[in-house]
Protein backbone atom coordinates (compact mmCIF):
# COMPACT_ATOMS: atom_id res chain seq x y z
CA UNK A 1 0.00 0.00 0.00
CA UNK A 2 3.02 2.25 0.24
CA UNK A 3 2.80 3.75 -3.27
CA UNK A 4 -0.81 4.61 -2.65
CA UNK A 5 0.08 6.27 0.61
CA UNK A 6 2.71 8.30 -1.14
CA UNK A 7 0.36 9.46 -3.82
CA UNK A 8 -2.27 10.28 -1.24
CA UNK A 9 -0.20 12.95 0.45
CA UNK A 10 -1.91 15.83 -1.39
CA UNK A 11 -5.25 14.41 -0.33
CA UNK A 12 -4.20 14.19 3.32
CA UNK A 13 -2.84 17.71 3.11
CA UNK A 14 -6.07 19.02 1.59
CA UNK A 15 -8.25 17.36 4.21
CA UNK A 16 -6.07 18.56 7.07
CA UNK A 17 -6.02 22.08 5.64
CA UNK A 18 -9.79 22.24 5.23
CA UNK A 19 -10.23 20.82 8.70
CA UNK A 20 -7.94 23.46 10.12
CA UNK A 21 -9.93 26.17 8.37
CA UNK A 22 -13.11 24.66 9.72
CA UNK A 23 -11.68 24.52 13.18
CA UNK A 24 -10.09 27.98 13.31
CA UNK A 25 -13.16 30.11 14.07
CA UNK A 26 -14.24 27.58 16.65
CA UNK A 27 -10.81 27.69 18.23
CA UNK A 28 -10.86 31.48 18.04
CA UNK A 29 -14.17 31.42 19.89
CA UNK A 30 -12.66 29.39 22.72
CA UNK A 31 -9.66 31.69 22.95
CA UNK A 32 -11.69 34.89 22.76
CA UNK A 33 -13.73 33.78 25.74
CA UNK A 34 -10.67 34.09 27.94
CA UNK A 35 -9.93 37.77 27.33
CA UNK A 36 -11.32 41.10 28.36
CA UNK A 37 -13.67 42.32 25.67
CA UNK A 38 -11.49 45.27 24.70
CA UNK A 39 -8.47 43.03 24.13
CA UNK A 40 -10.32 41.17 21.41
CA UNK A 41 -9.77 44.13 19.17
CA UNK A 42 -6.05 44.32 19.60
CA UNK A 43 -4.82 41.62 17.28
CA UNK A 44 -5.14 37.87 16.86
CA UNK A 45 -5.57 35.83 19.99
CA UNK A 46 -4.09 32.38 19.57
CA UNK A 47 -3.30 31.59 23.18
CA UNK A 48 -5.66 31.64 26.12
CA UNK A 49 -5.91 34.83 28.13
CA UNK A 50 -6.36 35.27 31.85
CA UNK A 51 -9.95 36.41 32.11
CA UNK A 52 -11.95 33.22 31.78
CA UNK A 53 -13.07 33.35 35.40
CA UNK A 54 -14.03 37.00 35.17
CA UNK A 55 -16.14 36.33 32.08
CA UNK A 56 -17.65 33.32 33.76
CA UNK A 57 -18.65 35.52 36.69
CA UNK A 58 -20.20 38.01 34.26
CA UNK A 59 -22.38 35.42 32.60
CA UNK A 60 -23.36 33.76 35.88
CA UNK A 61 -24.40 37.17 37.18
CA UNK A 62 -27.21 37.35 34.63
CA UNK A 63 -28.45 33.92 35.76
CA UNK A 64 -27.16 32.35 32.61
CA UNK A 65 -27.69 28.86 34.02
CA UNK A 66 -31.39 29.57 34.31
CA UNK A 67 -31.61 30.42 30.61
CA UNK A 68 -29.45 27.43 29.88
CA UNK A 69 -31.95 25.24 31.72
CA UNK A 70 -34.76 26.82 29.69
CA UNK A 71 -32.97 25.94 26.47
CA UNK A 72 -32.36 22.39 27.66
CA UNK A 73 -35.97 21.90 28.62
CA UNK A 74 -37.22 23.26 25.32
CA UNK A 75 -34.79 21.31 23.17
CA UNK A 76 -35.18 18.06 25.10
CA UNK A 77 -38.98 17.96 25.27
CA UNK A 78 -39.38 19.23 21.74
CA UNK A 79 -36.92 16.71 20.37
CA UNK A 80 -38.23 13.67 22.23
CA UNK A 81 -41.77 14.47 21.14
CA UNK A 82 -40.79 15.22 17.55
CA UNK A 83 -38.71 12.06 17.18
CA UNK A 84 -41.49 9.93 18.63
CA UNK A 85 -44.20 11.44 16.44
CA UNK A 86 -41.99 11.21 13.35
CA UNK A 87 -41.26 7.55 13.95
CA UNK A 88 -44.87 6.72 14.75
CA UNK A 89 -46.15 8.44 11.64
CA UNK A 90 -43.36 7.03 9.51
CA UNK A 91 -44.23 3.57 10.77
CA UNK A 92 -47.81 3.95 9.59
CA UNK A 93 -46.77 5.22 6.18
CA UNK A 94 -44.10 2.57 5.72
CA UNK A 95 -45.93 -0.51 6.89
CA UNK A 96 -49.66 -0.01 6.59
CA UNK A 97 -51.79 0.31 3.52
CA UNK A 98 -54.63 2.75 3.91
CA UNK A 99 -56.80 4.93 1.81
CA UNK A 100 -55.46 8.31 0.69
CA UNK A 101 -52.02 7.27 1.88
CA UNK A 102 -50.29 8.68 -1.15
CA UNK A 103 -52.21 11.91 -0.97
CA UNK A 104 -51.45 12.35 2.70
CA UNK A 105 -47.79 11.62 2.12
CA UNK A 106 -47.56 14.16 -0.65
CA UNK A 107 -49.28 16.62 1.62
CA UNK A 108 -46.52 16.11 4.17
CA UNK A 109 -43.83 16.41 1.50
CA UNK A 110 -45.41 19.58 0.22
CA UNK A 111 -45.35 21.11 3.66
CA UNK A 112 -41.56 20.79 3.54
CA UNK A 113 -41.55 23.63 1.04
CA UNK A 114 -43.30 25.94 3.47
CA UNK A 115 -40.88 28.22 5.31
CA UNK A 116 -41.57 28.21 9.03
CA UNK A 117 -41.71 32.03 9.08
CA UNK A 118 -44.86 31.85 7.03
CA UNK A 119 -47.02 31.21 10.06
CA UNK A 120 -45.02 33.17 12.59
CA UNK A 121 -47.34 36.17 12.76
CA UNK A 122 -50.41 33.97 13.09
CA UNK A 123 -48.63 31.79 15.61
CA UNK A 124 -47.97 34.70 17.97
CA UNK A 125 -51.65 35.56 17.93
CA UNK A 126 -52.70 31.92 18.29
CA UNK A 127 -50.52 31.52 21.38
CA UNK A 128 -52.21 34.55 22.84
CA UNK A 129 -55.65 33.05 22.25
CA UNK A 130 -54.56 29.80 23.83
CA UNK A 131 -53.17 31.69 26.78
CA UNK A 132 -49.84 29.88 26.73
CA UNK A 133 -47.70 32.75 25.60
CA UNK A 134 -46.18 32.92 29.06
CA UNK A 135 -44.67 29.49 29.02
CA UNK A 136 -42.11 27.58 27.08
CA UNK A 137 -44.83 25.80 25.09
CA UNK A 138 -44.65 28.21 22.12
CA UNK A 139 -41.05 27.13 21.69
CA UNK A 140 -41.73 23.42 22.12
CA UNK A 141 -44.89 22.89 20.11
CA UNK A 142 -44.17 24.13 16.60
CA UNK A 143 -42.27 21.59 14.58
CA UNK A 144 -43.13 18.58 16.71
CA UNK A 145 -45.08 17.59 13.63
CA UNK A 146 -41.95 17.61 11.53
CA UNK A 147 -42.42 16.77 7.85
CA UNK A 148 -38.72 16.16 7.45
CA UNK A 149 -38.78 13.60 10.25
CA UNK A 150 -41.78 11.77 8.87
CA UNK A 151 -40.31 11.60 5.39
CA UNK A 152 -37.06 10.27 6.75
CA UNK A 153 -38.65 7.74 9.07
CA UNK A 154 -40.93 6.43 6.37
CA UNK A 155 -37.97 5.76 4.12
CA UNK A 156 -35.92 4.22 6.87
CA UNK A 157 -38.61 2.00 8.32
CA UNK A 158 -39.66 0.81 4.89
CA UNK A 159 -36.08 -0.26 4.20
CA UNK A 160 -34.88 -1.42 7.59
CA UNK A 161 -37.81 -3.14 9.25
CA UNK A 162 -38.69 -6.50 7.72
CA UNK A 163 -42.41 -6.83 7.20
CA UNK A 164 -42.29 -10.53 8.10
CA UNK A 165 -41.30 -9.82 11.69
CA UNK A 166 -44.21 -7.46 12.04
CA UNK A 167 -46.58 -9.98 10.51
CA UNK A 168 -45.56 -12.77 12.80
CA UNK A 169 -45.75 -10.57 15.86
CA UNK A 170 -49.19 -9.51 14.77
CA UNK A 171 -50.17 -13.16 14.53
CA UNK A 172 -49.20 -13.49 18.17
CA UNK A 173 -51.71 -10.78 19.00
CA UNK A 174 -49.37 -7.86 19.31
CA UNK A 175 -51.11 -4.46 19.14
CA UNK A 176 -49.87 -1.79 16.77
CA UNK A 177 -48.50 0.34 19.57
CA UNK A 178 -46.57 -2.57 21.13
CA UNK A 179 -45.36 -3.51 17.69
CA UNK A 180 -44.04 -0.01 17.30
CA UNK A 181 -42.49 0.29 20.74
CA UNK A 182 -41.01 -3.17 21.07
CA UNK A 183 -40.07 -4.13 17.57
CA UNK A 184 -39.80 -1.10 15.33
CA UNK A 185 -38.09 1.36 17.65
CA UNK A 186 -35.18 -0.95 18.56
CA UNK A 187 -34.53 -1.74 14.90
CA UNK A 188 -34.50 1.87 13.76
CA UNK A 189 -32.27 3.07 16.56
CA UNK A 190 -29.60 4.54 14.27
CA UNK A 191 -32.20 6.67 12.52
CA UNK A 192 -33.70 7.72 15.83
CA UNK A 193 -30.31 8.83 17.05
CA UNK A 194 -29.71 10.77 13.86
CA UNK A 195 -32.91 12.72 13.89
CA UNK A 196 -32.65 13.18 17.62
CA UNK A 197 -29.28 14.85 17.07
CA UNK A 198 -30.50 17.05 14.24
CA UNK A 199 -33.79 18.04 15.86
CA UNK A 200 -32.04 18.80 19.10
CA UNK A 201 -29.51 20.94 17.29
CA UNK A 202 -32.15 22.88 15.39
CA UNK A 203 -34.24 23.49 18.46
CA UNK A 204 -31.22 24.40 20.58
CA UNK A 205 -30.05 26.97 18.05
CA UNK A 206 -33.47 28.43 17.33
CA UNK A 207 -33.30 32.21 17.52
CA UNK A 208 -36.14 33.80 15.60
CA UNK A 209 -39.11 32.15 17.33
CA UNK A 210 -38.01 32.92 20.89
CA UNK A 211 -36.96 36.38 19.72
CA UNK A 212 -40.46 37.31 18.64
CA UNK A 213 -42.49 35.29 21.14
CA UNK A 214 -40.76 35.49 24.48
CA UNK A 215 -41.00 38.79 26.27
CA UNK A 216 -40.68 37.56 29.85
CA UNK A 217 -37.12 37.41 30.99
CA UNK A 218 -37.65 34.27 33.08
CA UNK A 219 -38.45 32.38 29.89
CA UNK A 220 -35.48 33.53 27.82
CA UNK A 221 -33.46 30.88 26.09
CA UNK A 222 -29.70 31.04 25.55
CA UNK A 223 -29.68 32.96 22.23
CA UNK A 224 -31.88 35.66 23.77
CA UNK A 225 -29.97 35.85 27.01
CA UNK A 226 -26.81 36.73 25.10
CA UNK A 227 -28.02 40.28 24.51
CA UNK A 228 -28.33 40.76 28.28
CA UNK A 229 -24.59 40.40 28.72
CA UNK A 230 -22.87 43.74 28.91
CA UNK A 231 -24.74 47.00 28.96
CA UNK A 232 -26.24 49.55 26.64
CA UNK A 233 -22.96 51.40 26.66
CA UNK A 234 -20.54 48.52 26.51
CA UNK A 235 -21.06 45.30 24.60
CA UNK A 236 -19.13 42.65 26.48
CA UNK A 237 -18.09 40.59 23.49
CA UNK A 238 -15.77 38.33 25.44
CA UNK A 239 -18.40 37.33 27.97
CA UNK A 240 -20.95 36.88 25.19
CA UNK A 241 -18.59 34.63 23.35
CA UNK A 242 -17.92 32.63 26.47
CA UNK A 243 -21.67 32.20 26.95
CA UNK A 244 -22.00 31.04 23.35
CA UNK A 245 -19.02 28.72 23.64
CA UNK A 246 -20.58 27.19 26.74
CA UNK A 247 -23.83 26.84 24.83
CA UNK A 248 -22.23 24.55 22.27
CA UNK A 249 -21.32 22.00 24.96
CA UNK A 250 -24.54 19.96 24.94
CA UNK A 251 -24.67 19.63 21.16
CA UNK A 252 -20.96 18.95 21.07
CA UNK A 253 -21.34 16.09 23.53
CA UNK A 254 -24.36 14.71 21.72
CA UNK A 255 -22.67 14.79 18.34
CA UNK A 256 -19.37 13.43 19.59
CA UNK A 257 -21.21 10.54 21.18
CA UNK A 258 -23.44 9.93 18.19
CA UNK A 259 -21.03 10.69 15.39
CA UNK A 260 -20.87 7.08 14.15
CA UNK A 261 -24.61 6.58 14.37
CA UNK A 262 -25.20 9.83 12.52
CA UNK A 263 -24.10 8.45 9.16
CA UNK A 264 -25.74 5.09 9.71
CA UNK A 265 -29.04 6.72 10.54
CA UNK A 266 -28.89 8.80 7.41
CA UNK A 267 -28.06 5.91 5.17
CA UNK A 268 -31.30 4.07 4.71
CA UNK A 269 -33.35 7.25 4.74
CA UNK A 270 -33.64 9.90 2.11
CA UNK A 271 -30.69 8.62 0.23
CA UNK A 272 -32.04 5.62 -1.60
CA UNK A 273 -32.12 5.92 -5.34
Amino acid sequence: MAPRRYRAIPVYAAVVLVSLAAFFPFYAMLMMSTYVSEQLFTGVKLLPGAFLLQNLKTILAIHYLHFYANSLVVAATHTVAAVFISALTGFAFAKYPFRHKKLLFYFILGSLMVPPQLGLVGFVVEMKFLGIVNSLFPLILPGIANAFGVFWMTQYIAAAVPTEILESAKMDGCTALRLFLQIVLPIIRPALVTIFLLFFLWSWNNYLTPLVIISREALYTVPLAISMIGSEYRTDYAARILALAVSTIPVLILFAAGSKQLIRGLTAGSIKG
Binding site: V18, S19, A22, F23, P25, F26, M29, L201, W204, N205, Y207, V222, P223, I226, I241, L244, A245, S247, T248, V251, L252, F255, S259
Partner: peptide, 11 residues
Protein backbone atom coordinates in the same frame (compact mmCIF):
# COMPACT_ATOMS: atom_id res chain seq x y z
CA UNK B 1 -15.67 19.55 9.96
CA UNK B 2 -19.13 19.21 11.41
CA UNK B 3 -18.30 21.60 14.27
CA UNK B 4 -19.24 24.75 12.36
CA UNK B 5 -22.67 23.32 11.65
CA UNK B 6 -23.43 22.72 15.31
CA UNK B 7 -22.16 26.12 16.42
CA UNK B 8 -25.05 28.46 17.24
CA UNK B 9 -25.69 30.86 14.34
CA UNK B 10 -25.85 33.67 16.88
CA UNK B 11 -22.28 32.84 17.87
Amino acid sequence: NFLPYITTPVA
